[in-house]
Write a protein that binds this DNA or RNA. Structure first.
Lengths: 348, 348
DNA sequence: CTGAAAGCGCTAACAT
DNA sequence: ATGTTAGCGCTTTCAG
């Protein structure tokens, strides 16, 4: 800080000690461990601290190897995804709903590339700026679990398949729900189902695609074209849909890897003069609040963004308290059947 | 941290000093001010630091009154708004797009009430955990500007009317655009225009309402019912719309304080058998990505969420570097004319 | 230009 | 049960 502080100086532990007529050490013990002081002095110290409005200095504590009570969220994506992606805002929301009850804060950092990403994890943790990490967007050949293990950093991996690392994992299992989507397509008489995938380097995108593929096989359908460059955004979904429509193997149903992409698809389908679900059945993934408000309401798979955040944060916090974390927590994303996927009796 | 760290101990300034054959003080000077050492020793020191992979300790720096390079964002709303509100994700996105280029991180904290809010600001700043604040959601009789002034904390107020505090302000000016919305309603032959307001304690909500009211007067229209409890959410907009429809002074046009509320309104209007814009003309506020994808595409006023974040962060960072900030920055939100507001010639 | 030394606020031995 | 003391890693005087 360069500018002059107006406020009076904040009280230090010495001030409290003086006021309570004890030593600094006594204050530290009384207020931290709660032991090593008689009940009466402890009370006197507590009083003095309250009267002075004393709070421990994070910095001084950190210098002594104490934690600051923060968890880190390092995101290697463009900051713009906060604007377009359905996951992060909800996820953050889940984290905050847990942290706001505790004395914790979230430190967020968006990084542009893998090098910066690694350096940021290391720096933040080595300096005890954060106590642990919530790791998202696990990629194929992701170096982060190994690095965090080496650092000895507590971490919880969120939104990736089970056992994708040896850190505790919180997974959103959508196999059954995706199967339900495809089953509905089959029941409605569709034969060819396309898939618009998000980022093909992300483990969750790969898993969604695999579930789709398995279900398509199971119901004896034809896997339609897979468009891989949707990027989970509205615009990406629109472009991918154009490619699907231009394909030689034009499907009559599309399973999108995100609701946003499906909604982008809606506008392209409409422009092409196709009605949903009559001419093209559609299903998304995420169940964003908006899915039920578009026309027609979108069939989708609930992705429990918020729970991913809150459960992940809860587990991380418990780990920091020394508790043994559950190695794997699975949340189940149910199917939200709505009009966009058509009705069982209808034949396209 | 309880668990044992695997990684080798990180190097300290003493290690660097030893390696470079100088004193700790020399290292500090060389690497910070850049003065007080000859060019050659400075280079030698820099070398040693690089070889050792040394990084300064945030904690030790903070203990010496240095800044950590973080800016604080304290939000007194339910963490759920991240999930439902269009503003925060974009806003955060704007902040991060600036910070990710600098050596800064964002510290976010959601607080439940005013007391915690004040305590959090104070604590975070007094302990130099953050260098300054971005203040959003300014309310009527908001105590924060006064408190921050007393603390001597650098801050930028974002999204509030100009001169609503003596801190630098970044404002989104929508007067003209809202006027354009109402003018369109007038040209389409409407006589009564309702307004669905967000939180009536928020300065920005009050301002939107005022602009709407002034424009309605200017064009000789009748102000329809004002519903005050939309809360900016889809569900809130739906409920508010039900009340508007139940009103004795049923309007033929509604100006919503947010797109999300307007979209919530869409579903209620549809259920009531009303078509947009024929039976009810609609306009929103925000221009969220989705606005152009709903049916019919939503006329709205662009609220520059991201720019509010990036410009606010930029100004705050410059202040921290000692620069004099512009007392007021105004972004202009343009009108996005789409189908939901009807056509000029049409008479309802 | 450079080294030595004090001290930021706190914790954690170690005495008493 | 309590006080004393030595640092944590760094910045910043103050001497030389």
């Amino acid at each position: 800080m360069t500018s002059g502080n107006t406020g009076r100086k904040r009280p230090t532990i010495s001030d409290v000690a003086r006021r309570a007529g004890v030593s600094k050490g006594a204050v530290s013990r009384a207020l931290n461990t709660g032991t090593g002081t008689s009940a009466s002095t402890r009370e006197r110290i507590r009083q003095a601290a309250v009267e002075l409005g004393w709070n421990p200095s994070y910095a001084a504590r950190a210098l002594n190897g104490k934690s600051l009570g923060t968890i880190g969220l390092i995101v290697r994506r463009s900051p713009e995804i906060l604007d377009f992606d359905a996951f992060f805002p909800s996820f953050l929301s889940g984290i905050e709903s847990v942290l706001s009850g505790e004395e914790h804060a979230t430190v967020i950092r968006f990084v542009p590339d893998e090098r910066t990403e690694a350096a940021t994890y290391e720096r933040l943790f080595n300096d005890q700026f954060v106590d642990g990490f919530l790791v998202t967007d696990l990629r194929t050949d992701d170096g982060r679990p190994g690095m965090l293990r080496r650092l000895g950093a507590p971490a919880v991996v969120v939104g990736a398949p089970e056992n994708s690392s040896d850190f505790p994992t919180v997974t959103n299992d959508s196999r059954e729900a995706i199967r339900g989507v495809v089953r509905r397509f089959a029941e409605a008489g569709h034969h060819r189902v396309a898939h618009v995938q998000g980022d093909p380097h992300m483990l969750h995108a790969i898993q969604r695609r695999r579930h789709w593929e398995q279900a398509v096989r199971e119901f004896g359908l034809e896997p339609g074209p897979v468009e891989e460059h949707g990027g989970y955004t509205i615009a990406g979904g629109a472009r991918a849909t154009e490619r699907v429509l231009a394909s030689d193997e034009r499907p009559t149903a599309i399973f999108y890897g995100s609701d946003l992409m499906a909604i982008g698809g809606y506008s392209v389908l409409r422009e092409a003069g196709l009605t949903v679900p009559e001419d093209m059945a559609v299903a998304g993934f995420d169940d964003i609040p908006l899915a039920s408000f578009v026309t027609p309401p979108l069939t989708t798979v609930r992705n429990r963004h918020r729970a991913l955040g809150s459960v992940g944060a809860r587990i991380l916090l418990d780990m920091l308290k020394g508790q043994e974390p559950p190695p794997s927590t699975v949340l189940v994303g149910e199917l939200r059947m709505r009009e966009s996927s058509g009705r069982p009796d209808h034949t396209p």
